[in-house]
């Protein structure tokens, strides 16, 4: 694989944990125990049914939390820069820090030409970060725990990057799939592999984020059920675990937003510079 898939290991691990938990939960339900369904939290609820041009555009709980994320991010970055002070206030320096963080990520991974796409990557990072972090609030809804949302974001990145590649290099962008310095017979094998690895990018990008979010929240829910189920006497052990695991989940929430943004940068770098 061309790119260092930093989050892959964690995603896979989470997925396997999720499967075990799901199996356990189903077994519990079959046994008649009153365990809360850990998947219930991911249900989409239509708050305001809307239909536009035959498309179901209902305002759902997911929509609500997307808008909350947008309001939070936009509100923070616009209000904190209200003063535009040369010597920043506390909130302004946080906003500047976030700006510099993403800007240096783009500069380091894509180079200065990549700064044209900086607003997009910044928005992407902030949107995913806000959605992930809001998901940590109890009773909230995690927007990024739905594969369709993460896949849509990954598809935008994938299509955008591919279009940029073709605009930049014309048909020469196809040489990206032909590794240099490889004997011709090997190309028969390598070109399809390169092509497949390129085409699976949106899958890996979206599944990584979605699986991490879903697995983490399912796990928290399951252990929350254990705390209630075991009562005041035995509930302390899963509670202690949950406290630690919540800390880990906050880290994962940040890390997955970062990984998504960094991989977007790397894909963009491939399209702009065609490095092998």
């Amino acid at each position: 694989m061309r790119v260092a898939e930093t989050g892959e290991g964690m995603g896979a691990q989470h997925e396997s944990i999720t499967n075990t938990i799901l199996a356990a939960a189903e077994a519990g339900e079959a046994g008649g125990a009153s365990m809360p369904d850990p998947m219930h939290q991911f249900e989409i609820k239509r708050l305001v049914p809307i239909e536009l041009f035959g498309i179901d555009a209902s305002f759902t709980n997911s929509s609500l939390w997307m808008l909350i994320a947008v309001a939070l991010v936009a509100g923070f970055f616009i209000l904190s820069m209200r003063g535009r002070a040369l010597v920043p206030t506390r909130t302004q320096s946080v906003a500047e820090l976030a700006y510099e963080f993403v800007a240096s990520m783009v500069r380091d991974n894509v180079g200065t030409e990549g700064m044209r796409y900086f607003p997009f990557i910044f928005t992407l990072f902030m949107f995913i970060l806000a959605a992930n972090m809001l998901g940590m609030v109890p009773y909230s809804f995690t927007v990024t725990s739905h594969i369709i949302v993460t896949f849509a974001l990954a598809a935008v990145v994938f299509i955008g990057v591919t279009v940029i590649g073709f605009i930049r290099h014309g048909l020469g962008f196809l040489r990206f799939f032909v590794p240099s310095g490889v004997p011709a017979p090997m190309l028969v094998l390598l070109v399809p592999i390169e092509l497949i690895s390129y085409l699976t990018r949106p899958m890996s990008l979206s599944v990584r984020l979605f699986a991490n979010m879903m697995a983490g929240h399912t796990m928290l829910k399951v252990f929350g059920g254990f705390v209630v189920g075991l009562g005041i006497l035995g509930g302390w052990a899963p509670l202690a675990f949950m406290v630690a695991f919540t800390g880990l989940e906050v880290l994962v929430a940040f890390l997955q937003a970062y990984v998504f943004a960094v991989l977007t940068c790397l894909y963009l770098n491939d399209a702009l510079h065609m490095h092998h």
């Binding site: 989409i44 179901d56 929509s63 970055f77 928005t123 927007v143 739905h146």
Partner: peptide, 20 residues
Amino acid sequence: DFAPQLVWLAISFITLYVLM
């Protein structure tokens, strides 16, 4: 449930992009 999520994702993401 895909359609409403996609519609609102587009609305919110584009809004955020423009604001940013």
